[in-house]
Design a protein around this nucleic acid. Structure first.
Lengths: 350, 350
DNA sequence: TTGAAAGCGCTACCAA
DNA sequence: TTGGTAGCGCTTTCAA
């Protein structure tokens, strides 16, 4: 049987109310008594019963806001699903989760949703948006008003967000480079395609890739990278051109959307099997491309967990003041091939 | 605000007690009244508050048993850690988790622990043991006495266990084959090493591998597999011999322990870099071997999640009678290289 | 067959 | 500064 605050109260010769105030530094308790209570709690290894806490909190109510940019993309839909799953158990603790899905990379809209949510009384926000000075300002402004912000999927490193939940994109780029090194024979030729030139995530994925091939590759030849602006048609055009110019091309590394266009170009030029493609994010289109062999590898970022985890962290911080262990909470870099994309155990809340 | 059983009671014009009995088919309630209650609950989308349930259950107490064979191995230590994590929140619901760690592949000891735990009043068991007729008998016997069993890590497919939580080993073998196909040039020579000849998991990993290379490989040459009985010294000896016999060997696939011996042999024969190794399970030794380049890939089975999930499923089944969605709950097949082994987000209970 | 009440562990409130 | 009490949602027990 676990130790309860009642037991501590009896041992300390005080009431549960006093124990509660002492354990949570709520003040209004004699320092000597508080010290005694804390000591007893420590010795007994007291852990508050989360169910009891949740139950009483359900009386108070709390609102959390989540804003997802580019919500129309498959990856953000996965994030949203994770948010909804985490929201379930939180409801039992009186938490209302307000999920705002912003279409496209509309930072202005994100800022307005931030304002709307705080107006509506949100106690904390989880935000996936591209990193702009405006966003940083607004996050810092909220921080000063004791509204904590967690960034997810895309970080705002220079802001005062309490933490970031998402992929280590540089490391992912390195992982991709490692795969390419294993795959390609000496002298293999690789063409990297980036998304937007100013997208931090895509840039990191590119730098990690280039740095690692430069440092150790030696025998692999890199073509200069080109941006496709997340567009399938541009990726198609670029790829078509590169394929025609480079008969010996053996691999394409693409850090963003555009993989479908690139694969189509390879198909049309009848180079399937001779040109391998490494892409990002295990979504429906990519599942199909893996299945039919157009993609060799997909690096996945656990979007679902990004959504569920960031919400849990936000709640945890608000009720206990406990910051996460690290400021950067990296989700795994999952390497997917056609053989390991079956549905799997997914974290279920409890 | 979520709908409560109290609200349903008011709408139905009965008391909460009656609502509770009706919703859980506990009998002793007028069929007409029960139907009305169920209808209202359905319409309102009633979901019982898990915190309230856990709190009241904490009064009753429940014992769950977990038995882990080969508990001294790093993988089983991960499983045990998962079990302990899941046990935390369950304690708040009055659940005592009794974890029995059995050294080695001692099935007799496993059977005795099963008896001891049921004697002690365990309401359900989670078992990781190799699959033997004795084990199946005992699981079925328990099933008849309404003590559900979940198998984890290693299945007992012909028993009446309620489900299995672990790796799809055949699929993992296929995944390994996929990696080997991407890595090796045409004409590459692969040597597979198995663990015990009668170990189901190792056999599946081997079959998946061989089937897939046979079916599509074509250009890759397979040497006949040899068993190393999970022993590093045997693996070393076998590998040394094969390396000397086959100057053109390009890859070793090892389904069990023994990878350290194999890597040492490669080192001693100065073939590092020319012979790639694919192994299983991301434990401390394998982390090091990945880091220093001795291993190219490790296929990991999420041992931690196997432990936590199986316990949650067992509890879920006992309190709600709900079986898991599928009988075979496969944990992910994680492909690890030296670049993606950093610590990551791990499911935290709630 | 039904209802009333107690109590799980916790926190908030009000009174002392 | 402290204690007492109410009540979160649920299940169980006992009485009707």
């Amino acid at each position: 049987m676990a130790v309860t605050s009642q037991q501590i109260a009896e041992l300390a010769g005080v009431s549960r109310g006093t124990v509660d105030r002492a354990l949570h530094n709520r003040g209004r308790v004699n320092p000597d008594v508080a010290a005694r209570i804390l000591k007893i709690a420590e010795e007994l290894g007291y852990r508050p019963n989360a169910n009891g806490q949740a139950l009483v909190r359900s009386r108070q109510g709390m609102r959390l806001g989540v804003i997802l940019q580019s919500a129309e993309t498959p990856t953000m839909q996965d994030v949203a699903a994770g948010v909804r799953q985490a929201a379930g158990p939180l409801e039992n603790a009186g938490v209302t989760v307000d999920l705002r899905e912003v279409q496209g990379r509309d930072t202005g809209r994100v800022l307005r949703e931030m304002d709307a949510l705080t107006q509506a009384g949100a106690a904390g926000l989880a935000i996936a948006s591209n990193n702009t000075p405006d966003l940083i300002d607004r996050i810092d402004w909220l921080h000063d008003r004791d509204v904590p912000v967690v960034t997810l999927n895309t970080d705002a490193p220079d802001s005062r967000r309490i933490c970031f939940v998402g992929m280590d994109n540089y490391r992912a780029g390195q992982t991709a480079a490692g795969l390419v090194k294993e795959m390609l024979p000496a002298g293999g030729v690789v063409f990297p395609i980036a998304g937007h030139v100013n997208n931090g995530a895509h840039n990191s994925r590119l730098r990690g890739f280039l740095d690692t091939l430069d440092a150790e590759g030696g025998s692999i030849r890199l073509l200069p990278f080109q941006p496709c602006f997340d567009r399938e048609d541009y990726a198609h055009e670029i790829t078509q051109h590169i394929l025609r110019e480079n008969p010996s091309l053996s691999c394409i590394y693409i850090t963003s959307n555009g993989q479908q266009g690139a694969c189509r170009a390879i198909e049309e030029e009848r180079r399937r099997g001779r040109v391998r493609v490494v892409a990002y994010d295990l979504n429906e289109p990519n599942r199909r491309l893996l299945q039919n062999g157009a993609l060799s590898f997909v690096l996945d970022q656990m979007a679902f967990e990004q959504g569920s985890r960031s919400l849990q962290i936000l709640y945890q911080y608000l009720v206990s003041g406990r910051r996460p262990e690290r400021e950067l909470l990296y989700t795994g870099i999952l390497i997917r091939t056609r053989y390991n994309i079956a549905d799997e155990l997914r974290t279920e809340g409890c």
